[in-house]
């Protein structure tokens, strides 16, 4: 298996806040990696590092064999916090269409028929096609989240980064989205941050436990000891052979 993401002794500081310390990590092609860790443990920072949105303070990051600033377009990204302009005069379909842009879409760019049909397909799949003409700011939290997942998927990326993608989705939409992700995983590497242990244990192929440093990276088997170490306190595991659900600082609403 090819290595698609490689971090060597990477640290990230925001001013004097240490977000990540000395992380070394290899992610192989077509992996489905779940990342867990308490609030402020650097999970979002790790994804931004891979997306090329944050520069490492020290260490080396390679994505698809290159520095992440040269891999734009091959990395789909669904952010945790939507730093977007909700008042913008954009319909939902126009917002999703922006996922079809590339670094070459500069001069007199026009969306093609192929772009439109790719976008409509994915919007049907994610059950937001009926919302396509609505102004983007007028979506509910969960609808917005699905629109942003759609925007990342129409990029047809090689690596898909998802930062708590289902934080404001209802149970039905959650399992619907995970089954789509499972399909996509046949030809796409997926890296996903989630606080939802049920999901982590039933969908991911490997697991990383992060709290500024990397505590664990391997098969998705959680033990009390490990979780205690990562979360800094004993965490309850309701286990029936397979670890099922943990209840650390569980947050439903991460959407603002």
């Amino acid at each position: 298996m090819n290595t698609v993401v490689e971090l060597e002794n990477v640290s990230v500081y925001y001013g004097n806040v240490q977000a990540l310390f000395n992380i070394s990590l290899k992610i192989t092609e077509k992996d489905f990696l779940g990342i867990i860790g308490p609030n402020g443990s650097g999970k979002s920072t790790l994804l931004k590092l891979i997306a090329g949105l944050v520069k490492p303070s020290s260490g080396i990051v390679r994505v698809l064999g290159k520095p992440p600033f040269h891999t734009h377009g091959k990395i789909g990204y669904v952010p945790q916090r939507f730093n977007l302009n909700r008042e913008f005069p954009f319909s939902v379909i126009e917002a999703v269409l922006t996922g079809r842009l590339t670094k070459h879409s500069l001069f007199l760019h026009r969306y093609t028929e192929v772009d439109f049909s790719a976008v409509e397909d994915i919007m049907y799949k994610l059950e937001i096609h009926n919302l396509k003409d609505r102004q983007i700011g007028k979506l509910s939290g969960g609808q917005m989240q699905r629109a942003l997942i759609a925007r990342a998927l129409v990029m047809e990326p090689e690596i898909l980064l998802l930062d708590e993608p289902t934080a404001s989705l209802d149970a039905g939409s959650k399992s619907h989205i995970y089954s789509i992700l499972k399909d996509l995983n046949q030809y796409m590497t997926i890296i996903m941050v989630s606080h939802d242990m049920g999901v982590i244990s039933s969908y991911v192929k490997s697991l990383a436990c992060l709290n500024v440093t990397m505590f664990y990276h391997g098969a998705p088997e959680l033990t009390d000891t490990l979780l205690g170490q990562v979360y800094g306190c004993p965490v309850e595991l309701i286990a029936h052979g397979v670890p099922h659900r943990i209840l650390p600082q569980h947050r439903e609403e991460d959407y603002d």
Binding site: H72, P79, L84, F90, T98, K103, M155
Partner: peptide, 15 residues
């Protein structure tokens, strides 16, 4: 348009 709507995503697609 993309830059005005979501600067971070504009960077992600490589604009």
């Amino acid at each position: 348009k993309t830059y005005l709507f979501d600067e971070e995503f504009a960077q992600v697609v490589g604009l």
